[in-house]
Amino acid sequence: MADQNTTSATPALEVHDLTVSYHSKPVLWGVDFTVPQGTLTGIMGPNGAGKSTLIKSIMGLVEMNSGFAHILGGPLEKVRQQVSYVPQRESVDWNFPASVLDVVLMGRYGKLGLFKRPRKADKEAALSCLEDVGLLPFKDRQIAQLSGGQQQRVFLARALAQDADIYFMDEPFAGVDAATEQAIINLLKKMREQGKTVFVVHHDLQTAPEYFDWMVFLNTRLVANGPTKKVFTQEVLKETYGGKLSLLVQVGDLLAEEGLPPRKG
């Protein structure tokens, strides 16, 4: 639940002047936006636009060159227990010897300290999350024996088990069948109704306006940010998917080539 000093007026996410580089070439450049609480937000853009990088830098997984991201009005460290992250499904080895329940229980690890072990209550919480995603009968199944859609739902259940307020999901619909996609989106909408804020990296423009009530359009730079009704326009789409800015690309290449010292945030 929200901290005492964060009200519903505090933005869920405030990204300020964020620049992230890969091998000194900027992947995100001066990205600057704010998203209010209680939204289901789609992070949209073409391949290589920096969508995943945005989430990863917010979660502290890649270094920022400049700028910052505040979640619920503070840095990540202060609100870590209220934030949940769902990585891309391909980022882990599904041959790992673990059961479905093992993975979902990981969602409780953050709240346990260094030495404490999961208790019965943690296990019950994990089981109820599994029920929410419809995987309770599979709880002892080895994760390699699940379909792609089921694996994605396991990740979702793990995030639910964190009982967070803000969720960042990296392409939860990738490689998922239509029925599962529908089930997941229904779940996400239910979460929004409960006052949670959900960020989803998404590819499909067809379904996007139906899924999300807020959108962030990226293509290295921020193209648009706002309620779907306002920003899901032909103009914005053309600008987002119409290729990169040639001057920005040239300056980026120059930065990578010369190895200019990165700015100190």
Partner: peptide, 21 residues
């Protein structure tokens, strides 16, 4: 003692970092 930490950083290191391990 550190079964959980080793387990989670082996299976999914980026999730581990995201929850502060």
């Amino acid at each position: 003692i550190f079964y959980r930490q080793l387990f989670i950083t082996t299976f999914d290191p980026s999730f581990a970092v995201a929850i502060g391990i």
